[in-house]
Amino acid sequence: MNTSVPVQGNSNSLDFVNLDLLDFITPQPNQDKELLALLHFVPGLKEILMLRQVHALEHATVWLLSQPRSSRFISLLPRNFQVDNESLGGLSTEQGFFLYGDVNISDLRRAVTNGLQRLKDGEWNLAVHPRCGTNVSTSMLLTAGCAVGMHLIMPRGLIEQLFGLGIATTLAGELAPYVGALAQRYLTTSVPFNLSIESITKTRDMWGREAHFVKVQWQS
């Protein structure tokens, strides 16, 4: 799945969704491996499970590459503060992920390694990113659903329908970040317990855009 969309711009701080209250399902190191063993006859299941883990690693890498390097500055930041560098973005595949943006390969290697370890160590919030394509899809579905609901509830007059559409749009906009975060957390990403980093190379994606590709391996 498609990750943080690369958009040019300056770094800015984000007060994104705090997922501490969502930890009612604790990821287990063997969960994907056991699911694959149980449903081994399902075609494409391994690729789907691997894609979810790669997606989480991609998000963690973008977060870590966005953080300020000055330890003095970091010490002044509030707890759970995260910085999003909008010039960075990524695209996940079942074999690894493309990282777009001006990045030093040594910094990228460090971010990928640290991101993988920190996700495994329990920093699952790193798997969720506000610019993920999941949020865009979720927002569109919520807007469409709320609009249809308001259309059915409100009177058929033009003014009433426009008023209902405004309510639907506002409601969807308020809910989208939270629902999108939940969708990422439990549907489109997974803690990469089964991944190891194979290589990081500078390449071009299928559209010819320059990128780094982080190739991973599945560990049984």
Rank of each mutant, 00 (worst) to 15 (best):
N2F: 15
S4I: 12
N12R: 14
V17G: 00
L21T: 10
L22D: 08
Q31R: 06
D32Y: 09
D32S: 11
L35Q: 04
L36A: 11
P43C: 05
K46M: 05
E47F: 01
E47C: 00
L51S: 06
V62G: 01
S66W: 02
R69H: 13
S70R: 14
R72Y: 13
I74A: 07
L76Y: 11
V83L: 14
V83K: 12
D84I: 12
E86I: 07
G90Q: 10
T93V: 10
Q95V: 08
Q95M: 10
F97Q: 00
Y100W: 04
R109G: 06
R110T: 04
G115N: 01
L119R: 03
K120T: 02
A127G: 05
V128R: 02
P130I: 11
G133H: 02
G133M: 02
T134Y: 02
T143I: 12
G149R: 03
G149V: 07
G149L: 05
M150W: 07
H151A: 12
P155G: 11
P155H: 10
R156I: 07
G157I: 01
L158W: 13
L158A: 13
G173R: 10
A176Q: 01
V179Q: 11
A181Y: 05
A183Y: 08
S190Y: 00
P192F: 03
T201E: 12
R204Q: 15
D205S: 07
R209N: 11
F213Q: 02
V216E: 08
